[in-house]
């Protein structure tokens, strides 16, 4: 089972590597990172914090663009071009295909996040003479959130086309980050609200002392719960679909 899932994931990564999108986004992110120090001057110490905040925000946007561009059309195009027949006619279960696809996309986007973060670190080292290793804590949160975004995108794309996938992901992100605006903390809904806020650590990373291992583990568990729920629904929808 694992072998088949990894084979599918490997083919997704190989396919993504041959596309131009990851390189274009990486180049754009590099240019943006190099341009951040041109922002208006702040006092010493604050400027590094602003750099960290803008750099992580840029990594988040670049990762989201990459994730959606790779994931939204992946399953629909495989179904439409019927390349999926060669896979599913083997002894491959539908959920293995869904899981393998998500795993491959997540590996690709995580590699890109690592590259974006490394570029930001290099720029920080060159401009401020500071390695800013704390950026990797922010990257951890972004990586987990992108894993959730990809799971939602893959799940929705198992039953419907790319445009709807983008709309649903936008809706999930909006709902996931609107708990503070939509529900008060004394409401019983507060606890059960499907929030993604716990994955956003740009503020403590940029302006505070970062996050500890315990909170990082909590973020991981929370992201896994989202991913499992999304992939289960996606697999269920895909397994009931005539291809």
């Amino acid at each position: 089972m694992l072998r088949r899932v990894l084979a599918i994931a490997g083919s997704v990564v190989a396919d993504a590597k041959r596309r131009r999108t990851p390189y274009v986004v990486l180049l754009f992110a590099g240019v943006m990172a190099a341009a951040i120090p041109m922002l208006p001057s702040y006092s010493v110490g604050v400027i590094q914090a602003v750099y960290r905040e803008v750099a992580l925000a840029m990594v988040w946007v670049a990762s989201l663009v990459l994730a959606l561009s790779l994931a939204a059309g992946r399953v629909p195009s495989e179904v439409e071009r019927r390349t999926v027949y060669n896979v599913l006619s083997k002894d491959v279960r539908r959920w293995e295909y869904v899981l393998g696809t998500w795993l491959g996309l997540t590996a690709t986007v995580w590699l890109a996040i690592a590259a974006f973060t490394a570029v930001c670190q290099v720029v920080a080292l060159a401009i401020y003479g500071e390695a800013m290793s704390v950026l990797w804590q922010g990257a951890w949160g972004i990586a987990l959130e992108m894993a959730v975004v990809l799971a939602v995108a893959v799940a929705v794309s198992c039953v419907i086309g790319p445009m709807v996938v983008v709309a649903v992901v936008a809706l999930v992100l909006f709902i996931g980050h609107s708990r503070g605006a939509l529900v008060t903390s004394d409401s019983p809904l507060w606890r059960y609200y499907p929030s993604l806020d716990q994955l956003v650590v740009i503020n403590p990373v940029a302006h505070g002392s970062g996050i500890g291992p315990r909170y990082a583990t909590f973020m991981f568990v929370s992201a896994v719960a989202w991913v499992v729920a999304a992939l289960l629904l996606g697999s269920l929808g895909f397994s009931r679909r005539d291809l």
Binding site: G10, R82, Y85, N86, V87
Partner: peptide, 21 residues
């Protein structure tokens, strides 16, 4: 039959071989 366009014939068969265990 349709295949991913960006792979070679050998790479395509490698994927299917892995799926076959």
């Amino acid at each position: 039959p349709y295949f991913p366009q960006h792979v070679t014939a050998a790479e395509a068969l490698r994927l299917y071989g892995r799926l076959l265990g």
